[in-house]
């Protein structure tokens, strides 16, 4: 699967994922706590500098993320210009833009596996309430494995329906594909669970020391 990671040899890429996430959280607190133009404008400039110059990300990568919220930003600006004032509009748009871009930089410079490791680390305290952090890595991996599998099965079901002359479009088409698809994958889930158990998924958790090297 295509992740949003862009490989480069930059200090931003090398920074541990946990620090980058903390910085992102810090930035979001800052731009909302200090709602002034210099802060928000400075944040956008700093993030662009970091992303384009330091991390050497192609501008297109950041642009694509910004485009997802572009119409929102334009609409917001117009709405504020009409209802409140241009200054509030500019401020609102700038601080949203800063956050969206900063998040995009973190995502583009951090590998999925690193993120998974951070999540497992964040979840470690949950061990006290009976959650096993190692299982979080497992369900993430399984979901990634299931996405292409389900897409493929959906295609196969639609082909089979088309081969027998029925391929309703639109909503009815969606329903007639999803029902057999769900029944198929739910049945498969039963076997998958058995296969996991057969490979030791339900073993007692290993002692902490040994689990470290996962």
């Amino acid at each position: 699967m295509l992740a949003l990671y862009v490989p480069r040899a930059s200090p931003v890429h090398r920074t541990p994922a946990g620090w980058k996430l903390l910085a992102l959280a810090g930035l979001s607190v800052l731009v909302f706590a200090v709602p002034t133009l210099p802060v928000s404008g400075g944040a956008v400039a700093a993030v662009l500098l970091l992303g384009l110059a330091v991390a050497q990300l192609p501008a297109g990568v950041l642009l694509r993320q910004a485009r997802a919220v572009l119409w929102w930003l334009v609409g917001l600006f117009v709405l504020h210009a009409v209802l409140t004032d241009v200054l509030t509009g500019t401020l609102t748009v700038l601080r949203l833009l800063a956050l969206v871009l900063a998040a995009a930089v973190v995502t583009a410079t951090t590998r999925v596996t690193e993120m998974v490791a951070v999540i497992e680390r964040i979840c470690r305290p949950l061990e006290w309430v009976g959650v096993r952090p190692a299982r979080i890595g497992l369900v993430i991996a399984m979901a990634l494995r299931f996405i292409p599998l389900i897409a493929e099965r959906a295609d196969r079901i639609r082909e089979a329906q088309a081969a027998r002359g029925g391929l309703p479009r639109g909503l009815r088409g969606l329903a007639t594909t999803v029902v057999p698809l769900l029944v198929q994958v739910l049945q498969m889930a039963h076997t998958t669970a058995e296969a996991l158990d057969a490979r030791g998924a339900d073993d007692e958790p290993l002692p902490r020391r040994r689990r470290r090297d996962r």
Binding site: M1, L2, A3, L4, Y5, L21, L24, S28, Q65, A68, V69, W72, L76, L96, L99, V100, L101, A102, A103, A104, V106, T107, A108, T110, V112, M115, V116, I119, I140, A143, L144, I147
Partner: peptide, 23 residues
């Protein structure tokens, strides 16, 4: 979590942490 760790799984291929900062 999958979206947050950087996979473009939202409709029309969006994803990553940016999705959690937008409107």
């Amino acid at each position: 979590v999958l979206v947050a760790i950087g996979l473009p799984l939202l409709a029309s291929g969006h994803g990553g942490l940016a999705a959690f900062t937008g409107p």
